[in-house]
Design a protein around this nucleic acid. Structure first.
Ligand code: MN
Ligand code: MN
Ligand code: ZN
Ligand code: ZN
Lengths: 143, 143
DNA sequence: ACGTAAATGCATCAATGTTTCAAATACAGA
DNA sequence: TCTGTATTTGAAACATTGATGCATTTACGT
């Protein structure tokens, strides 16, 4: 009756994170959900058992280790999504555009659409880029 | 000894906002500063007299009326910058790129650089776009 | 199976922002 | 210029997000 060596246990090990119930649950939830989730969303989804502080710490270490990335939501609440497989502690490779639906409020990672490069004024050196669109998503289009 | 009919009084009137001390002060500060300021920054700059709650409300109405725009800082604090002259309550026209310096933490509006358009997957309809770069700014470049 | 470093759970604290309501004030109209 | 009224302000209370310190528990290398 040992725990099946599932995908998430492996992912945690690969990123030097210990295998705990909370971590497995959060990782599973974010991998399964097709849009970004806030800390509050995750708390709701995981049910009443979860400790808010532990969840914050989980999200923080996941972000540091390259398991998830924070979506540049321009509101006051952070939302998180699973990273592409090649992200690590040392470098994030989530160079895709994000899309926030003004109707359902969901934020999608558009992994197919990469962020275009712009020419900057002299002496500005860019290292990271974020591109956030807002509008109406696929699900919310009027017939 | 009447108040000189200055630029800010005019701007307020044009956007259907009453002429108050707080509003003049905030508008003047944001117009004069070459990078975006947080609510906290503004509080510091304006000195100990300012009421925090009134300031929040000032920023909120300025944003609604199209006098300032919120910069999509991916951290937990909102920063504000003066809008281009043609913004109004009904439409913002700040289609420029923003740049956050990882050294001095300042966020600049790069008004010269407009946001490139991307091709979205079917059925996604974009209405607004935000593009935030991070890196080293002009002032912080090593010699 | 053990020892230890890491993670958890809980209390406490801090920052940001909203709401409610009475008092003050800007400004349109007389 | 005076006056009435809708807007704005200032203060207290509240809500939410998140960090920190510390004792206890747990995961995992040996
Ligand atoms: Mn993403
Ligand atoms: Mn700007
Ligand atoms: Zn939608
Ligand atoms: Zn700088």
């Amino acid at each position: 009756m040992s725990t099946a060596p599932d995908r998430y246990v492996q992912l945690l090990a690969q990123h030097s994170l210990r295998n705990t119930a909370m971590r497995r649950a959060v990782l599973e939830l974010l991998s399964r959900t097709p849009f970004a989730l806030s800390s509050h969303d995750i708390e709701q989804e995981l049910g009443p058992g979860v400790d808010r502080i532990t969840l914050y710490r989980t999200l923080k270490s996941f972000e540091e280790k390259g398991l998830i990335h924070r979506v540049p939501e321009n509101s006051d609440v952070s939302k998180y999504a699973a990273c592409s497989i090649e992200c690590s502690q040392h470098a994030h490779f989530d160079n895709h555009v994000h899309f926030k639906c003004t109707n359902c409020q969901h934020v999608y990672c558009l992994n197919q659409v990469s962020i275009p490069v712009v020419t900057l004024p002299a002496k500005f050196e860019a290292i990271t880029r974020d591109y956030l669109l807002a509008g109406v998503c696929r699900e919310c289009q009027p017939a």
